[in-house]
Structures are given as C-alpha cells and as structure tokens.
Design a protein around this nucleic acid. Sequence first.
DNA 1: CGTGCTGTTGCTAG
DNA 2: ACTAGCAACAGCAC
Length: 277
Amino acid sequence: MPELPEVECLTRAFKNEALGGDCLEATFFREDLRFPIDVKGVRKILKNQKIEDVFRRSKYMIIRTAKGFVFIHLGMTGNIFRSAKKRSEHKHTHFSLKIRTFSGENLYFHYVDPRRFGSVHGCKLSEFDDYSLIAHLGPEPLETQNLAGHFKGLACGKVKPVKSFLMDNAVVVGVGNIYASESLYLSGIDPRRPAGEVMTDEWKRLSANIKKVLKKAIKAGGTSFSDYQHTDGSSGYFQVQLNVYGRKGEACNGCGSVIQQIRQSGRASFFCKNCQK
DNA sequence: CGTGCTGTTGCTAG
DNA sequence: ACTAGCAACAGCAC
C-alpha cells in the first residue's frame, strides 16, 4: 500500500470520519509488528478519548488525543479498512479501533498488515517534537518551498546515487521506491548519477516533478474511505500512470526504448537509458 | 514443491 | 562520515 500519497489519502479519509469523535475501544490481536507494540501505553492514549487531530508526518498517520499521540505506520503491506462490523473480514488484522463519530455513528477501523513491517507507537503530548521516530526526519516534500536548494545543499560532495539520495529519509521524507523512479524519469535524470554531480537546473526539475507526481497520486486517491478503498491500486497505486516502475522490458512512453531494471541499495530501479542522462 | 522477488526503514558492518 | 546491506514477514509469480 504505502507511499506518501497512499498514507496521505488514508489519513484524510480517517480524519473525515474520526475527527471530533470518540475512540470507544482499541483492541489488539497481536503485539509483534515490526516493533513490539506498547499496548498499554497506546490504549491509554486512545481509549475513551476524543480524537482531537489526525495528520500525516512522513509515512506515519498520527492521531492526537488529550493523552498523547499515536503513530501508525503501514510498512510495506499495511492498510486500514473501515467497517460497520466489529469483526474484520481480513486476515492479518492486528488491531481495531471502535470510533463513535461526532454525528453518533459507531464505526470500526481495522488495521491489516500481512508482512507486519508496519508499527504502532504512542508518546505523550510533551514528547512529540523530539520523539525519536520523527525527530531525525527530513522535510515534507510538498511543504518545502525551496526543495531544489535543499537538495543541492545536502547533495554537495555526495557520491551516493541520486535515487538512493532521494529515498533517504534524512534528506526528504515520503519519496519511496516508486515515486523516486518516476520523478527521475520525468526529469530525464539517470538514477545512477552521484547526487553531488546533479546540476542546479536538474534539481529544479526534479523537485518540481516530485511534487507533481505526489500531488497527482493524492488527487487520484480521494479523501473519503469510499474513494480511497475503491481505488485499490494493486499495480497502479491509485491508477496513476507509471512510466517506468515495474515496466522492465516494455517500451518507454517517450522514445520507445526498452525500460531497464537495475538494483540500487537493494531496491529495484527502473529507467530509460535514452531519456535519462 | 522450491526460489526469488515485493510498496519500508532502523540498525550494523565495512 | 558515508554508504551498502541486512533483517523483520507473508504472499505471489515463476
């Protein structure tokens, strides 16, 4: 499921229904996700508390109550399903939240994650700013005005390939494997280039394209659970047209050359060697 | 049947 | 200081 646009849409959808409502119950079915869940701590923050805010930072959906913040990360295969039923119909449901909405409706949100690379954490209100999960993170791409300048400054002297550089959460958050490949393609930049050798005008193009692809995908994903869960993108991720990701051996949409697949820092990378220099 | 991938990311080893 | 590689896991394509 998750890259930034998916988490953003899920967060908006959850916020739409849960904001101002009360969490009546937080039930945990297993505690061994990527990190052991502090069930007592998280439940204390949620149970019988009003949902005061819901927002996204990096790929975390964050819920605020009067007792603290709860961070939900979807890992690689996580998702949250809205249901009128207490019992989840999905395998690998690890916890469920029962929410009585502001308008008085009872809803369940089931957290499902087959691979269990996701995680759930809680912290006190006063701990938020330096909470270790988010304290070291780089800026949000969509909220950074001079993203190109930011990249240029950090990339100086770096030999790390530009694609791996983009996926480094200390540089910028929310640019995962798919959108890193896609934005480099749109910018005509070879993913193997050392970050330090990328030119100023290329950083400008790249920054603009990162914002463009992310916004486009968010738009395709919608803001309500009915939008969100109907745009099930098993290959396309919200039906956004992918130019290179997953298209090894197919024809480039720009020039017809064969799309290449290579491996960079353990991840699959796709590019067109004719269009990306 | 196995084998080798997969949208994440914190930690470790070099 | 920086970078590459691994680990955690279930599911799926071959």
